[in-house]
Design a protein around this nucleic acid. Structure first.
Lengths: 298, 298
DNA sequence: AGAAGTGATGCATTTTTTGCACCACTCTAG
DNA sequence: CTAGAGTGGTGCAAAAAATGCATCACTTCT
């Protein structure tokens, strides 16, 4: 879009940290880029960048402006999407940031199912911890976020909530495998692997452990649930995961048992968008589809 | 703002109904304007105007686009206003659409009072009936609207509400002048002047009259409260107005008496903005100032 | 049938943007 | 302390883009 070219340049400069580097990235001369920015600042009525001896950096005015432009670009896409929709085109693009737990089963299933009836819609999926997911929303990098126990920044508008009880994953020959519900203290008696602190599962475990006397003493700490799931096969340890990230068939040699709600409260899987934003049709429809799917789970 | 020039042209064409007329308005050649629009439509990915034999008209896509652009311009002003504010400039512009009743006393007082502490802030005031006021909000022509009994479209977000009992205005030698509260049927026995149907006062009277047996039979119907106020001096008739539009001093020869709430319910004076919009600092602050003033009245 | 509208288009002209060379300046490495 | 490699800023000529003019094809109303 031609009239947003200045923004593209501004964003490039912001990202590169210097006009010359940005000019190089954008295949343009530094002088031309420099003058574009000067001209824009003059029209805008205020400087956008601080001139430092080693480059430039957005000043507060610039940060507000960039946020404005991002919202603007996002809204323009929404309009284009709606225009395409009213000519019956049913196409568009949906970008989703989601927690790791949703990567192996839930998201692929949902997206594939949606694309059966909307083959013109394309997707981008980003794995993000709960903090990064919310940042993606507020910078308009993602339309939707599906996150377990987010920090809930002000920009996060909840579209749907689904409770998830943390489960304990282990081999079926593990001593605890016979029970139906597990107490946290029993789990901590056995070698356990836990996610790193940025994850909601770990956060809930930390809070729960702090209430009791037993501390979490992981034999392995990892930021990949995929890794943890495979690790417990080798050292007969236990791992933690939410049900939506698990799919155990009878002969897999693994079992997953829920943690007692007396010890660890259920967390929530939240579907959200940037607060106040009107989503493009494709994203809004896919969000609705996710809502139905999450309702079916709960 | 340079990057919104296309929008200025598009709006001009929309307003003029033809490219040539718009080109004339904008001091540009029709061919140049024509090509700008063609280029824009190509970049946008869809036609914006219907080409009719006698000119052009926005198509649905174009209407969505114009709405988008208006929101965009409005938001850019908000950003500029905030930028100016953070450098301590305390300037800006506030546009208000308001009912006629507020024109003689309330708005001048409020604006003058606000400008004492914020001399850098400028104002534009438009008299609008309740329907036009809401349209002004949703097309971003006004930041705020202060209207008596609006129709309440979806785009109208209420910021403050103040009840207003309809008063009957007459000369102090009028037969009814001695009462303290008036019944509607008594009023209808005397020659009365009423506002035209677009006004909230008339609407409330119509509804009230429909409940009883007495019909409204105005000797004069007018769309100017100023006219009506002066008319009752000449024919010793009665007129209707809400208290905020009245200021009677003892020796003026006029009295205003409230209508009984048994006959005519109180209407509401509503301060509102475009739903979901973030107002520029100046407008938001002035709205806050109006809220306090309205609270003091109620 | 003709006049007066409309939007579209090819081509020369004008305006704007860009690229190049260079300046003034600040840091850092030797 | 100096030399070099960064940085943003600027004058001037070349390139690119937007504009104006003349004209076409078409519809509507007189």
């Amino acid at each position: 879009m031609k009239h947003l070219q200045d923004f593209a340049y501004i964003e490039a400069v912001m990202q590169a940290g210097s006009i010359r580097k940005a000019a190089d990235d954008m295949n343009i001369t530094a002088s031309a880029l420099n003058r574009r920015i000067q001209r824009f600042e003059e029209e805008f009525g205020s400087e956008i960048f601080e001139r430092l001896p080693r480059g430039v950096r957005l000043n507060p005015a610039g940060e507000m402006l960039v946020q404005h432009f991002r919202a603007q670009v996002s809204d323009l896409r929404r309009v284009q999407s709606q225009v395409a929709d009213l000519s019956g085109i049913r196409r568009g693009h949906v970008s989703v940031a989601c927690s790791q737990a949703l990567i192996p089963y839930f998201m692929p299933e949902q997206i594939a199912r949606y694309r059966v009836s909307h083959p013109g819609v394309t997707f981008s999926v980003s794995v993000r911890d709960r903090e990064a997911a919310e940042r993606d929303l507020s910078t308009f990098r993602s339309d939707l976020a599906l996150v377990f126990e987010p920090i809930l920044l002000v920009d996060f508008e909840v579209l749907m909530s689904a409770p998830q009880t943390i489960c304990v994953l282990m081999r079926d020959d593990h001593p605890l495998a016979g029970q139906s519900v597990l107490r946290l203290r029993d789990c901590l008696d056995h070698p356990h692997v836990v996610p790193t602190r940025q994850y909601g599962v770990r956060h809930l475990l930390d809070v729960a452990a702090a209430r009791g006397t037993r501390a979490i003493a992981p034999v392995v700490e990892a930021d990949s649930f995929d890794f943890m799931r495979h690790y417990v096969i080798h050292e007969n340890a236990i791992a933690f995961q939410i049900p939506i990230g698990l799919r155990l068939w009878p002969d897999s040699g693994m079992v997953a048992l829920p943690l007692s709600s007396r010890d660890v409260p259920s967390g929530n899987l939240l579907l959200g968008q940037m607060r106040g934003r009107t989503l493009p049709v494709a994203s809004a429809r896919f969000a609705q589809s996710l809502r139905l799917a999450l309702e079916a789970i709960a």
